[in-house]
Computed example of a mutant assay.
Amino acid sequence: MDDILRPLYQERASNENTLGVLDVEKTKAFSPGTDHFDSILLIIVKESDQPWMIKHYEFQSGSAALHVVTEELLNSWLMLGTNKRAVDWVMNGKVLFNRNEYITRLRDRLHEFPAEERTHKIGLEFAKLLRRYNDGKELFHSGQYLDAFNNIMHALHHLARLSVIEHGYYPEVTVWNQVKMIQPEIFKLYEELVTGEESIDKRIELLLLASEFSLSSKTKLGANHLLSIIKQKDEWAYHELMEHSEVQDYAIDLPMLLTHLKDKGYIKTVKRETKSKNLYHRYYAIKE
């Protein structure tokens, strides 16, 4: 297969814009990890007008998909978890081209999971956990049990990913296998929700209580990224926080996260006068 696919990447490898080329081969008959292609060629480039370009090919003995992705988009996938296959491709793909050890350094980074990246990713997962928990709680109290079930299941998934990251590992597609070994009590919560014999409303009620405890116990850890940013100056207007480059990844959940931190006593709101009587700007600051 290498001889057939070589022309697809050989010319690109000679281009200085190309950082690395990986080949991910199908190993099982049922292979969603490769979109059921026999081979995925992942070409990482410094920059491109098109951040992600895909081409599909067929040959006598099978099929292949070519993915050309910019370094910036790949890093976004790895941080946000929006393309979970990317972690597997980078970690397990066969290296066909490795300019200045780029892929080697990328893999080392994923293995080591630097503290700064870990803190950022924990913040993302905590914000999503908080959103799903609150949505699930609201739906439960309005009697929408199936929708509540869905949200609580997602909340547990974010709690599981947060736990994996907390222990210094990168969350994989099979995150529950990781959690089962790292923090079995979270795995048991998931089992109880999915396979418990009690009625669905009772299972959700129990999981809401457990999730509320987890939210309280994980708040300092989960909000450390945002709190470290708020500490950078005395007061922040909401739009200033929302537009901060490191907060934009979870800006959609920022209002709920700020409310949670205020309720838990980590931050306070500060009123500043506007031109209108009895109407104030709201600012956010660390509570000393």
Rank of each mutant, 00 (worst) to 15 (best):
G62L: 03
E112L: 15
R107F: 07
H141I: 02
L66Y: 05
N98K: 01
M79A: 06
A29P: 01
M79R: 09
I54S: 13
R109Y: 10
P7I: 13
D38M: 01
H56D: 15
K128H: 10
S61H: 09
Q60W: 09
E47F: 03
N134E: 04
N98W: 03
N83F: 05
A86D: 08
T119R: 15
S76H: 06
S14G: 03
V21D: 10
N15D: 13
R99F: 04
W89Y: 04
F30Q: 14
G81T: 03
T104K: 02
M91T: 15
L22Q: 11
I54F: 02
N75Q: 09
V95Y: 08
R105S: 12
H141L: 13
K137I: 11
R107P: 04
I44T: 10
G62R: 03
L22P: 11
S39R: 03
L80D: 10
F59H: 05
L73P: 09
E58N: 08
M79E: 01
L124K: 01
T18Q: 10
L110P: 03
E71H: 02
N92T: 13
L73I: 05
G81A: 09
S76C: 02
V69C: 05
K55M: 14
S31C: 12
Q144L: 13
R105D: 09
S63D: 15
E112C: 12
K26W: 15
T70H: 07
K94P: 04
S142G: 06
L8C: 06
V45M: 04
V90Q: 01
D49T: 00
L78P: 01
L5G: 03
N134I: 13
N92W: 00
L139K: 08
E25Q: 13
K121Q: 13
V87T: 09
K46R: 14
E116N: 12
K46S: 11
R131A: 10
H111Q: 14
E117C: 13
R12N: 00
F97I: 01
L96I: 09
